[in-house]
Design a protein around this nucleic acid. Sequence first.
DNA 1: CTCTTTGCAAAACATTTGCATGCCT
DNA 2: AGGCATGCAAATGTTTTGCAAAGAG
Lengths: 142, 142
Amino acid sequence: MSKELNIEWAIERLKEANYKYTDKREALVRYFVDKDRYLSAKDVQEYMSEQFPSLSFDTIYRNLYLFTELGVLESTELNGEKYFHFACRLSGHHHHHFICKNCGKIKALDVCPMSIMGEQLEGYNVETHRFEVYGLCPDCKK
Amino acid sequence: MSKELNIEWAIERLKEANYKYTDKREALVRYFVDKDRYLSAKDVQEYMSEQFPSLSFDTIYRNLYLFTELGVLESTELNGEKYFHFACRLSGHHHHHFICKNCGKIKALDVCPMSIMGEQLEGYNVETHRFEVYGLCPDCKK
DNA sequence: CTCTTTGCAAAACATTTGCATGCCT
DNA sequence: AGGCATGCAAATGTTTTGCAAAGAG
C-alpha cells in the first residue's frame, strides 16, 4: 500500500463527509502515514509548526478528532494523554497493536482476545474492548 | 473473602511500607472494597466528603496513587479520566476485567490474550499489556 | 518529638469552546 | 457568496506541587 494511496483515501473520506480539503489537513494525514506510529497532539504540533508556524493547537485537536470520527485515525489513551495513529485501510479487519514505549512505533497483532472469551460474558452486553501490548521494539531494545 | 480481611490486608501493606494509618485512608479503602468497581477520583471525593467534609482533592489523589503503588488498587484510563478499583488479594493471579459502562461494576475474566500471542512478538521486549472489555452488566442491560 | 499526612491555594497540563476572520468550493 | 476552517484567547477539567499546619507513631 503506497503512502500516496493512503493519503488520497483519507482525503476522499473528508470529502465524502462534506469536509473541506486544506493543506494543513493533508499535512497532518501525511505525517501519520509517514510515521506509522502512535503520536500525541504535542508530537503533531511540533512537526506541523515547522511547516505552518502559525498553526494553533485548537486546529490540530479539531482535526485529530475529525479524522478519528471519519475512521482515518484511531486513538488510545496513555498516561493522561491521547495518542493517535493512522488506521490503514489495508488492515480493514479488526486487530490490535503492540506499541513501542520508546518510539511509539506500532505492530499489528493478528489475534483478538475476544476469540477465546468463551461463555464468560453470557448475559453481558459487550460493546467494545481494548487490547494493547507495550514494550520495546527490536530497534529500541538495543 | 470477607471485606474486613481485605481492609486489614490493605492497612498491612500501608504499614509494611512505613506509611501511616489514618481514618481517611481506611475509609478510602473501605469504599473500594464495598463497591468493588471502577471509580474515578471524583466518585471517591463525592463519597468521602460525606464523612470528611473538609477532605480535599489532593489528599484523595495522593492516596489513590499511594495505594496504586502499594498494589492495593489498580487503575485504568477512560475518556481522559483515571479509574481505580480494589486489587483483591484473592485474585492474586493475573487477570483482566469486564467493566460496565453504566455502573462501573467489574467482572474478572480468566483469560489473558498473551496466552495466544504465539511467536508474533519474537524479537520484541514485551513489558506490559492492557485488556479490558466494556459494555453493560446484566443489571444495567435491562 | 519527629516525620508523615493533610488542607489550601496555585500551578501545570491536556483539551475544549466562542467568536471573529479567512479560505475552500 | 456561503459555509466550513482557522487563530486567538479564554475556559474547562483533571491532576500535580509547594508550603505551612495538624496528626500519627
